[in-house]
Design a protein around this nucleic acid. Structure first.
Length: 260
DNA sequence: ATGCCGGGCGAAGCCCGA
């Protein structure tokens, strides 16, 4: 089954591209981030017409995540466990189905964390600690598990154009990378890196300064797999071509295939 | 380094992103 993650930067502003992408790439499951709408504003009818079931965890104006699946979506959890008072819609988890197996998936929009000297950076680190705790708990179930989304983490210097530019940024600070590596080291596999070793492959390019044309990007969208999912991993690729479109998101989809 | 872009909100200009 093909599972894709895509930070769409507003599902309403991006609707034509998202529909075109769903028709072209035809993922079995799509994990969306930054839908930037409340649940009632999600363009359900248009996406259901393409054969998808939909589960959303929306919010007015900011954030918001969703799961689309050709097969049923069950056991939906909205919000990252660990802080019931957190108002930001950045996490949705559910069971979806491949031909052979159920798969637990999460669509993750991890906080950016800039500026680092504001309350936003501790919020990011705290959110990452909550994600680590939750992932540890999920891994005990030994399920086929895919935690994918916009992690807002540049894992290594080879995942950006110029590490000096990012040295003091919340996406690349040592504390940020350490938290990400703690998460991965629970026993998760970075699907893209398991399939592709070539450095400087990016999933995000800023709208400003001709960043895409200069290939000044960063790899911050990731799919992390439990051992049971990693055993089934067939491929992982970045769909760079969607960044070249008119009205493109600043992120592109990451597509993985697992034999589930 | 920032706010050069782009979206939301709401009807100008600010907040936010990475």
């Amino acid at each position: 089954m093909k599972i894709a993650t895509f930070n769409v930067n507003s599902v309403k502003a991006r609707l034509n591209i998202v529909l075109d992408w769903l028709r072209t790439t035809a993922p079995d499951v799509a994990l969306l981030q930054e839908i930037k709408t409340i649940d009632d504003g999600f363009p359900r009818i248009e996406i259901e017409e393409l054969g998808y079931n939909i589960a959303t965890h929306g919010q007015k104006a900011y954030n918001g995540v969703a799961i689309l699946s050709r097969r049923p979506i069950e056991d939906v959890t909205r919000g990252l466990p660990g802080d019931e008072t957190d108002p930001q819609a950045r996490y949705i988890e559910a069971i979806v189905y491949g031909e052979k197996h159920p798969v637990r998936v999460a669509s993750i929009y991890l906080p950016n964390g800039n500026p680092v000297d504001s309350e936003k950076y501790p919020y990011k680190l705290n959110w990452m600690a909550r994600l680590e705790d939750h992932a540890r708990s999920l891994l005990r179930n030994e399920e086929i598990l895919v935690l994918a989304g916009d992690y807002n983490v540049i894992p290594t210097a080879d995942d950006c154009y110029d590490p000096k530019v990012w040295a003091k940024d919340a996406l690349f600070l040592p504390q940020t990378r350490a938290a990400f590596h703690r998460l991965v080291n629970l026993g998760l596999t970075d699907a893209f890196r398991a399939c592709q070793t070539e450095p400087h492959r990016y999933t995000f390019w800023d709208y400003q300064g001709g960043a895409f044309e200069k290939d000044h990007g960063i790899r911050i969208d990731h799919a992390l797999l439990s051992p049971q999912a990693a055993d089934l991993l067939v491929s992982a690729e970045i769909e760079r071509q969607w960044r070249a479109r008119e009205k493109a998101s600043d992120h592109v989809p990451l597509l993985i295939e697992i034999a589930a």
